[in-house]
Simulated scan of single mutants.
Amino acid sequence: MSATASTGTGAYAEVNGINLYYETHGSGRPMILLHGGLGSGEMFGAILPMLADHHQVIAVDLQGHGRTADIDRPLEVPLMADDIGALIAHLGLDRPDVVGFSLGGGVALLTGIRHPEKVGRVVSASANIRRSAVYPEMLGQQGQVNAAAAEFLKDTPMYELYHRVAPRPEDFPRLLDKIGAAMQQDFDYTDEVRGMQVPTLIVAADADMAPPSHFVEIFNLLDGGLRDGGWMGEGRPKGGHALAILPGLTHYNLVDSPLFAATALAFLDQQD
């Protein structure tokens, strides 16, 4: 493993009016890595060495997260996907793979949908494509995320991380307000997913924030799970898509799992 896999090189890119922070680890074919809500690229610390052993990993801090300061626009997945499309062009990358978890999984999926000419493969983990797919009790908890919750989160790793690395640590309540507002917005990307042109791996924990059936439904939209695969794989999804439900994991520890890293790498490295 290269030394850069653990230390990384940080830089900023001015794209779409936002000063996007990213860290580069390892070497090989480029992979853009996108974190979950209230996190940063650092949340992949447990599996980053494994990923960077195979790829040049570009871990991005999304709008208002980590070392990327917020700007005056809503925190919306399509806008953040356009940021990633712009970052790919800014860095001159040749169709990098895009891997994301939770919020980042949604951004990865939308990057592949909105900028297919810029992306090699997509891994979208623990990202539902309809708000209604999330368990009702979780939707209730999401409804309580706002600036007033900042005080109650001060002992959490999310707060500690933000306070340590954010350009404006005092913006944490603002981030909670914006991410809370974003989670209240209804969305349904069914039609967009159905037209996906980039080979995509849908990943979920077997005890995720939405039921396994939802991720099977996404796979169905990608022409998967509709017929026998065939001896030679001729019945597999036409677009090269795949599905992985990972055993013994939840929405909260999938990102730390070597099983997730190995599954993502197996899918991405099929193109080698």
Rank of each mutant, 00 (worst) to 15 (best):
Val122Leu: 01
Arg130Gly: 10
Met43Phe: 07
Arg95Gly: 03
Lys154Ile: 07
Gly100Tyr: 00
Val77Tyr: 06
Glu137Asp: 12
His163Ala: 13
His90Pro: 05
Asp72Arg: 09
Arg95Gln: 13
Gly36Phe: 02
Ala127Pro: 13
Tyr159Gln: 04
Tyr159Trp: 11
Leu51Met: 11
Ser102Cys: 11
His54Asn: 14
Gln141Pro: 03
Pro116Met: 09
Pro78Phe: 03
Gln142Ser: 13
Ile88Gly: 00
Arg73Pro: 12
Ala52Trp: 04
Phe101Ser: 05
Pro157Thr: 11
Ala52Thr: 10
Gly41Met: 08
Ser40His: 08
Tyr135His: 15
Gly37Tyr: 09
Glu170Met: 06
Leu33Lys: 05
Gly85Asn: 01
Ala148Val: 15
Thr156Gly: 08
Asp82Phe: 03
Ala52Glu: 06
Gly105Leu: 02
Ser124Val: 03
Ala59His: 04
Leu175Ala: 07
Leu110Ser: 00
Ala133Leu: 05
His115Phe: 02
Leu33Arg: 04
Phe44Gln: 04
Arg67Glu: 07
Leu62Ala: 11
Pro78Cys: 08
Asp155Glu: 13
Ile71His: 07
Leu75Asn: 06
Gly92Arg: 06
Leu62Asn: 05
Asp72Thr: 07
Leu91Glu: 07
Asp72Tyr: 04
Ile129Phe: 08
Gly39Asp: 13
Ile113Arg: 01
Val60Cys: 06
Leu48His: 07
Leu34Phe: 11
Glu42Val: 06
Gly140Met: 07
Ile129Thr: 09
Gly105His: 03
Ile47Ser: 03
Phe172Leu: 10
Asp82Lys: 03
Pro116Tyr: 05
Asp94Ser: 14
Arg121Pro: 04
Leu93Asp: 02
Ala133Thr: 05
His163Asp: 15
Glu76Tyr: 09
Asp61Ala: 04
Ser126Asp: 13
Asp53Phe: 05
Asp97Met: 02
Ile88Trp: 00
Pro169Cys: 13
